[in-house]
Design a protein around this nucleic acid. Structure first.
Lengths: 159, 159
DNA sequence: ATGATATTGTTGACATGTCAACGAAAAAGT
DNA sequence: ACTTTTTCGTTGACATGTCAACAATATCAT
């Protein structure tokens, strides 16, 4: 009934090393599920929607492409998510007078209300999670993540 | 054109803390894409398939539920993945004589060939990735991931 | 024994992630 | 000016993740 953390085949030569990506996969999925449940309870919105609200922010007008750069969400996915958020009156749009291609996006009054209610809860959640780490772990995990990211990119050119 | 790493709204009080889950999300997705490309090039199989092959192993007969426990993959997803792998002659099944509900699974000769070719490549990849970390980072990221995982579980009961 | 309960694997439904093609509009090159 | 290239957002296709319902079989309790 217990879940094996480390695939045995990887343990032969290099015991812990091998399974890092595996661990990240699992932890990521648990964190995702947790965030989704939490958000659902707190404000009834989805994780994707929350990320977008965070990128739009409580005031000002953004564009699709700015959100994409900011959140690294796929533009197609963003387009579809926004459609839903406009339908449920979380986001409103207006035309950009200078560039006919883009739309300017902003939270509606309702969206802003939810945003302001949700932000402190999400902060609290993050504090709880990060609070479980020691200071050195906190520092190390960030630099480790950065390094892994660039290592994955570098490796593309080799293999 | 640069991607903002940290959502500004989270930076007010607790600069780095807040975005840990965000960072994990991105790095995980990059690693996933990388693994998929790598596997595609090396042996033409998908990441989900590779995880399953790893769980089955080069010899012996396993069951669906054992693989689920081992890999923490959803059983429905597993069922569907296996269907494809059987079609492409990577996996074969036989009935379990003692329990009519379960099937016993094993790699075919072809599956075993691919497995043996792929394993060292994936080891090499992992070594490359983990090799980019210092020893202390290596240690810290594992314990940090463990703690985050349990913290997410604990938090369910609170909020 | 037999009736309630749990486990195994399949299937359906739906959200999310990833990639590529496309039309419209703007920017750049000549 | 006008052709080429780039950017912006939409849409389609398809893989993956998550949850729940289900039939068949096994286990457990009495």
């Amino acid at each position: 009934m217990t879940i094996a953390k480390y695939p045995a085949e990887f343990d032969n030569d290099t015991p812990l090393q091998e399974v890092l990506t595996w661990r990240i996969h699992h932890v990521h999925s648990k964190l995702n599920v947790h965030a989704a449940k939490f958000l659902e309870k707190v404000s009834g919105i989805g994780l994707a929607q929350w990320r977008i609200m965070l990128a739009i922010g409580p005031d000002g007008w953004t564009t699709h492409s700015e959100i994409c750069r900011y959140t690294a969400v796929d533009k197609g996915q963003l387009s579809r998510s926004l459609k839903g958020m406009i339908e449920s009156d979380l986001v409103e749009t207006k035309n950009d007078s200078l560039d006919q291609r883009q739309q300017r996006l902003s939270l509606t009054r309702k969206g802003r209300r939810i945003f302001k209610k949700t932000l402190p809860m999400m902060r609290e959640r993050q504090s709880f999670l990060v609070g479980s780490l020691s200071k050195s772990e906190r520092k190390a995990i960030f630099s480790a993540l950065d390094k892994l990211e660039t290592a994955a990119l570098d490796h593309e050119f080799l293999a």
